[in-house]
Amino acid sequence: MLLKSKTSVLLLLPLFWSISCKQKEIHEQPLADEINLGSSSEIVIDDEEFEIVEVIGPLEQSLIDAGLVDVEDVIPGILVDLKYSTEDNFFGQDVYGELIRCYLQPVVADMLKNAYEKLKEDHPELTFLVYDGVRPLSVQQILWDSLDKPDSVKPLYVADPKVGGLHNFGVAVDLTLAFAETGEPLDMGTHYDYFGYPAYPDREAEMLREGIITKEQISNREILRKVMKHGGFTGIGSEWWHFNAYSLKDASARFELVK
């Protein structure tokens, strides 16, 4: 029995050796795919199979249907950060949801383009950073209802949706200046949606005397005001970031409220 067992082992050894050698040959042999990757035989992938399709939500589609335009389509190089599509705003809530692009009336977008071209002519290192454009009445109603103040005081902070404001016509824009390479905003003395005298263009001289804002911050605001005026916009006394393309009377005569 013992001799038989040893003989069996001796007979199996060549077989194991043969299998081991072939496994080694298999592992050491380069894979066909690895060989072909560096050769002229390349794998071609049809780009159409990987086309990215942007989904447009109901709110954005309603803006398109109303005839408004995406400012980034009109002004390549402009930056957009819709603050009402985040919680970084006076109301602390996202009311735009999936909407991340800024829309304006076509004529207003063209006016903004003229202002942008003036900015690039005077300060090539800068660009616009847009915080808000058209604001549909449905969103305006949410803001109105969310504001925890008496109705008599609310118009100081947000337009009454029963009347409508210039944002609701798509003819007002909120924006600042930023460095084109980094997207970093210039220091304007206050953040967007700051409600207080330091944000008031009408109070800049007073705020400067009191040391609340600086000459550099005022100078940055003046750059913004100058180029926006060149585009045909007018500012307001209480928000350095807000500019109107039309008066409320003219906007009402030319455009429909965006609902």
Rank of each mutant, 00 (worst) to 15 (best):
I218R: 10
V258R: 10
I236R: 06
N36W: 11
E117C: 13
S247I: 06
P150N: 03
R254I: 02
G164I: 03
E256V: 05
F128R: 02
I56E: 11
I35N: 05
E49Q: 14
K83W: 00
L257I: 07
D88C: 01
S138K: 12
L68M: 01
L143T: 02
F255H: 15
N168L: 05
A253R: 10
S247A: 05
A66D: 13
D193P: 01
D73F: 11
D122H: 07
H27K: 15
S146G: 15
V108M: 04
I52L: 12
I236Y: 02
G235V: 03
V107K: 13
V134A: 14
L119C: 10
F50T: 14
D73E: 15
D160A: 02
D73C: 09
G189W: 13
V9W: 05
V69D: 07
D88N: 06
E72P: 03
P198E: 09
L257H: 08
P30I: 02
P30F: 01
D193A: 08
H123L: 01
V71L: 05
M188G: 08
Q217N: 06
G170W: 09
A109H: 11
N168S: 11
K154L: 08
I75W: 01
R101M: 01
N89R: 06
V95C: 07
L37F: 08
F50N: 14
I35Y: 06
S41V: 15
D122M: 11
E184Y: 12
D65M: 13
P198D: 09
Y192A: 12
S5W: 08
F179V: 09
Q61H: 12
S138G: 10
I218G: 04
D88A: 03
G232W: 02
H191F: 07
E25C: 14
I236D: 10
E72L: 08
S238Q: 09
G92E: 00
G237W: 01
T7E: 11
Y84W: 09
L224E: 00
D47T: 12
L99N: 07
L13T: 00
L112K: 14
V69S: 09
T176N: 03
F243K: 03
R203E: 15
L79N: 05
V258P: 08
I218H: 05
K22I: 15
V74N: 04
F179Q: 07
V134H: 06
K149M: 13
D88S: 04
I56V: 15
F16R: 04
E34D: 13
D202Q: 12
M1P: 05
P58S: 10
L12K: 08
R221L: 00
E181S: 14
A172V: 04
L59I: 09
E117Y: 14
Y246P: 00
L31D: 06
